[in-house]
Design a protein around this nucleic acid. Structure first.
Lengths: 222, 222
DNA sequence: TAGTGGTCTAGACCACCGT
DNA sequence: CGGTGGTCTAGACCACTAG
């Protein structure tokens, strides 16, 4: 069902913008229950292949497939999955007042308790990524007692803190002097950067910048 | 249902690694049909929040929420959505033999008909992205007749060609001399790069490199 | 092999939103 | 307003796989 509809779209029998038959018509045509048709079409709509609206019916999306789902893996697992040996070094851990840009992004006041954790993840002994993180201790007080010399803040938070929503951004940056030193590269070299902030209801949980060594790419299938 | 399960995970009543009750038990607890439970749990599993296996039951994922879905928008729409004026310039269009790296990535022979289309997308008159594309004319012969001076190859292909699968990669690169000239920036400046190749069954449809002007970021919510 | 999720059915009522 | 998708039910059988 799902596959048959996809096939008709790919064969261009149903083209972008076209309306396709109603659920009950398709159910008769395929000789199945409407619920089955509904499930198949809803899945295709979630994938961005179809546009569905009550009363207006179902149409092939104008720009089908304009979505990609990325895995955001734990760095350790990513390294180990490539068969490399992972290592990790904690560089800075301090209770400190974040710079105003961070405070603003997290919606924090100057007197909110925050902890900064800066560490380097390495693959086969070579620096792979810098993790520069600020944790809101008011929301995750347990983090103050966690042993970030053994497990990365990245990994600790994934299993010990929950979030309701967040945002993530990918960009290209020139390595700063400090970043270059940690990654053993020259300053101003292009590096791939991921900025992520997560929230629990109205409160920021943590914000992190991951700065990857040159050559890093995020890859996914469509 | 969906929300209630999410809430229990976020409250850490069900923690990563924990097994949660069977579908029929939850159905009794919530006073609904098993089908309803199944739909809710299946949705959470697709989102990476739950791990489900027949016979083994349902568990909270060890690394919940390790997925992000990105919109891969048409550049024109992306610009217009920001309220900027979009413009587009075709720079190169030629039937040519792709370099061996491209041929290899697309699985083409030297005598397969291919067309190169290189263009620049601009926002408010400022170059935003270079689109450097190779099209497999054996699979999309209509592309030879398309008017790429008016509509970008990007946009034309989305509505006139289908694909069964593809892959996409994001990386940070140093701008080459040619790219720097087209984007009106200095060489070696960090630029965000998207490489994408799409396939129809066993044949490559097109491969494209989008090179974005400095400052570009991809952003999404989690 | 037994227990779990995966999928389907036939029917029902509801919510939304173009016309 | 009416027609469409959205969601639910109660039941059934199947497919997979852990023990």
């Amino acid at each position: 069902m799902h596959e048959e509809v996809l096939e008709r779209i790919r064969e261009r029998r149903w083209k972008p913008g076209d309306a396709i038959p109603r659920e009950d018509e398709l159910a008769r045509e395929f000789g199945c229950a409407r619920g089955t048709v509904n499930r198949a079409l809803r899945a295709l709509a979630e994938a961005g292949i179809l546009d569905r609206r009550r009363r207006a019916g179902t149409r092939v999306a104008l720009h089908p497939g304009g979505k990609a789902t990325l895995d955001i893996p734990i760095i350790r697992r990513e390294v180990e999955a490539r068969g490399q040996t992972y290592s990790y070094a904690l560089k800075i851990r301090e209770d400190a007042v974040p710079p105003s840009a961070i405070r603003e992004a997290m919606g924090l006041r100057r007197d909110d308790p925050t902890q900064r954790v800066l560490s380097v993840h390495s693959a086969d002994g070579r620096p792979l990524a810098i993790e520069d993180r600020w944790i809101n201790l008011a929301i995750v007080p347990m983090a103050a007692k966690a042993d970030f010399t053994r497990i990365s803040a990245n990994e600790w938070l994934v299993t010990h803190a929950s979030y309701t929503h967040g945002d993530i951004a990918f960009s290209a940056q020139a390595a700063s002097d400090a970043e270059a030193a940690l990654l053993h590269i020259d300053p101003c070299v292009p590096v791939f950067v991921i900025d992520r902030t997560t929230w629990y209801k109205a409160d920021a949980v943590t914000t992190v910048r991951l700065t990857y060594a040159p050559g890093y790419r995020i890859h996914t299938r469509l």
